[in-house]
Design a binder for these strands. Structure first.
Lengths: 158, 158
DNA sequence: GTAGAAGTTGAAGTCAACTTGAAGTCAAGC
DNA sequence: GCTTGACTTCAAGTTGACTTCAACTTCTAC
């Protein structure tokens, strides 16, 4: 029989608050069996899931995305190290893209905001979408951001 | 007499929705005078502020932080290019730190998650705070994140 | 057998950054 | 004078990821 952990134990060992554990259960990220009296009992396996969740959150994934990843784990058998590392392989590309976006933004600071041209008609810092729309020479200013500021407006003052 | 822009004009030229402009006024990021009838009239200067706000948001600053920056602008006179570029100079360091953090996280993928060790006691990917606490050999895994996932838990499974 | 800790549920609250809606006002043209 | 469109305020709704609360139950120890 596998070890069954209580909410408090899982909370203490995972660092997630009990309320977060319940929330994750609601959202389908983790599951728990119940005692006859209705208390949750966690398989120790859940700690690995929670470690994955913590890391994924750090990478910037939403809970929906994390659940989608976790859904790729094999059903019926305990996931192996290979299973876990396969899931996180995509993060690499995501992080690369995000780093690239930030570097482009940083480099734009020197050329654009640094010179005070912030308010110009097509300043790329305040108006990065222009670049995505028309990748002219010297463009590639902002690869699609990974944590997209949703519906960011276009600024074309004066 | 300086040009006075209507809400619609500012909205169209800045890309911010009228509701956002009102919200920013509430929050003290921009201001507007009023006509005798109570309608907002914006100084053209506001477009530069909005361009700054758009860029700052892209860098990841909160509205509170942006307002704090804008409060550093000189009162009484129209800000110069130097004034504006001084404000954005801090972004450079912020972006550098954020890039560094992401690179460290990405490099950790290869060594840590890539090998399946995600669930180990002190895995640095799921538990970056450990590194901040004790910068042992091979540490420096995660500089303080700039968009801090507030109250991120520590995960120390099994 | 009973106190107290630990756990349960469901509903509501939180935060940021807005958006949406309702109900009313102002301004311009005819 | 009236319609129409632009605008006003204030209140409430939205989203994501939870937390907090109230009211109740279950388990453990003595």
């Amino acid at each position: 029989m596998t070890v069954r952990l209580t909410v408090t134990e899982v909370s203490e060992r995972s660092g997630f608050a009990p309320s977060a554990l319940r929330y994750y259960e609601d959202r389908g990220l983790v599951d728990a069996t119940r005692t006859p009296g209705g208390r949750r009992r966690y398989d120790r396996e859940v700690l690995r899931r929670l470690a994955f969740i913590a890391a994924a959150k750090h990478v910037g994934l939403s809970l929906d995305e994390i659940r989608a990843s976790l859904d790729l784990l094999p059903e019926g058998r305990t996931p192996t190290k290979r299973d876990w590392s396969r899931l996180s392989r995509d993060w690499r590309a995501r992080l690369d893209a995000e780093i690239e976006a930030l570097e482009a933004l940083r480099d734009g600071l020197d050329g654009c905001i640094g010179c005070g041209c912030l308010s110009l008609q097509r300043c790329r810092l305040s108006n990065p979408d222009d670049v995505l729309a028309s990748r002219g020479p010297g463009a590639a200013f902002l690869p699609a951001p990974l944590h997209p500021t949703p519906d960011r407006p276009r600024v074309t003052p004066e």
